[in-house]
Structures are given as C-alpha cells and as structure tokens.
Amino acid sequence: MRHLTAAAAVLAACLVAGTAGASSLRVAPTGLNLPAGNAASSVRVWNNDREPISVQVRVFKATMVGGKERLEPTRDVVASPPMTQLRPGTENLVRVVRVSDRPVQAQERYRLLVDELPDPSRMKAGTVNVLVRHSIPVVFEGR
C-alpha cells in the first residue's frame, strides 16, 4: 500500500511540475497499397499546430522475422522531400516512389516513417514535449 501511495505522489508531482505539449502533425492516407505496375503514390502531411514544425520522412524495407516486423534501410523506394518545414496550418505532399528497376515478383512491403523533429527553441524547463511519429505501411503488389 505504501508503494502505491508513493507512486501516486510521484505521478501527481510530475503532472503539476510541467505541462505537456503535443504537435498536430497529421498524415493521410494511413496506408498505401499500389497495384501491379504502379511505382508512385503520395502522402499528405499537415501541421495543425500554432508553431512551425520540421518533419523528416524515411522509407524502410519491412520484413517479418519470427512474427515481428523488422525494418531495414532501402534504396529501392524513396520519399521526396525527405525533410520539410511546415508553417502553421499548412500541408505538404510527400511523393513515395519505387525507383528499383527490378520488377516486383510477388509483393514488396515497406514502412514510411514520418517524424516530427524536435525544435530546441520550444524546449522549456518543466515541460514535456511529445513528438509525433506516423508509421505508414507501403505495399507494392506484383504481377
């Protein structure tokens, strides 16, 4: 019982000591499934925050190993632009393109990571800054 009371006190102190701020980074769609023969698609990213945010976009090859998804660097699929700054209330289009000249045999799976980057000017003592990461599945279907 003493441990529970102590844990509750620590939690309350953390909540009082600082405020939490989360950005409003949104993406759509939340998944890309490209039929055979299609090598490109796009994702929209929005900033609904009152401050500008920096965003990084990366693509990884996704494979299943022992029932868990494993992400590996790839050059077969790229995202453009890989980095962008979004002003408050604006959106940007990110192109996702399969650049490999090797035909898709069955199905290729990738993961598009859209990360909000930390802004040092917004980090203040006693606050918690929550950064957003969107993990979007990208699937290229074979013939």
Rank of each mutant, 00 (worst) to 15 (best):
H3K: 11
H3Y: 12
H3V: 13
T5M: 02
T5A: 02
A6V: 07
A7E: 13
A9V: 09
L11R: 15
A12D: 15
T19R: 14
T19K: 14
A20K: 06
A20H: 12
V27H: 07
A28S: 15
A28N: 14
A28F: 14
P29Y: 10
T30P: 03
G31I: 10
G31H: 15
N33Y: 11
A36K: 13
G37K: 10
A39R: 09
S41N: 01
S42T: 11
S42K: 08
R44H: 00
V45Q: 01
V45W: 00
W46C: 01
R50Q: 02
E51S: 05
P52Q: 06
V57K: 00
R58E: 09
V59A: 02
V59I: 05
F60K: 01
A62M: 05
T63N: 06
M64L: 10
M64C: 02
G66L: 07
L71H: 04
E72L: 12
T74A: 14
D76H: 14
V77L: 05
V77D: 04
V77Y: 02
A79N: 00
S80N: 01
P81F: 02
P82I: 01
P82V: 03
L86P: 00
R87Q: 05
R87N: 09
P88G: 00
G89H: 03
T90A: 03
N92M: 11
N92S: 10
L93Q: 07
V96L: 02
R98P: 02
V99E: 12
S100W: 08
S100C: 08
R102D: 14
P103S: 10
P103Q: 10
V104E: 05
V104S: 04
E108P: 01
R109S: 07
R109P: 02
Y110W: 03
D115M: 08
D115V: 03
L117K: 08
P120H: 09
P120D: 05
G126D: 15
G126L: 15
V128Q: 14
V128S: 14
V130D: 04
V130F: 08
V130S: 10
R133E: 11
R133I: 12
H134M: 03
H134R: 09
S135I: 04
S135T: 13
I136R: 07
I136H: 02
P137M: 05
P137H: 07
F140T: 00
E141A: 12
E141R: 13
G142R: 10
G142W: 08
R143S: 14
